[in-house]
């Protein structure tokens, strides 16, 4: 069984996603890019956008939702940095998602439940 890695330095990161697997590796475990290819994907509890941004190159549209505004600000900044035009991040809670019924093809709860 493969083991993915993340590295931290002497200063432990406040952003927990730095302690989590790289998104490409995690996506591979879930079935590979085929899972999200040309799909509408929502990352519920997206934090700083780790998985959402990992899905973006393959998906048609990705939305990340998280209740923490500072995490969403960071996710948006990362998306701008990466030029990921098909990703949106919204502040919100998993129990009340501001989207129409049946809008998404894939929902990801990574370290969320």
């Amino acid at each position: 069984m493969a083991t993915s890695t993340s590295a931290v330095g002497r200063l432990l990161p406040a952003i927990s996603s730095l302690l989590r697997p790289p998104p490409a590796g995690e996506l591979r475990e879930y079935g590979g890019v085929a899972l999200v290819r040309r799909k509408r994907v929502i990352d519920i509890g997206c934090g700083d956008g780790r998985m959402a941004l990992g899905c973006a190159p393959h998906a048609s549209e990705v939305v990340g939702v998280d209740p923490d505004p500072s995490a969403i600000r960071l996710a948006r900044a990362k998306a701008r940095e990466l030029g990921a035009a098909n990703v949106k991040f919204k502040v919100g809670v998993a129990q009340e998602l501001p989207f129409a019924d049946g809008y998404f093809d894939v929902a990801i709860l990574s370290w969320t439940l």
Binding site: I44, A94, D101, Y103, F104, A107, L109, T112, L113
Partner: peptide
Amino acid sequence: MVDALREARRILRPRGILVDARPD
């Protein structure tokens, strides 16, 4: 948590996929 799963079902199309991942 059940509410979150109910909401995830609502926004997914029929036969859409939900991935749940967490530390074991």
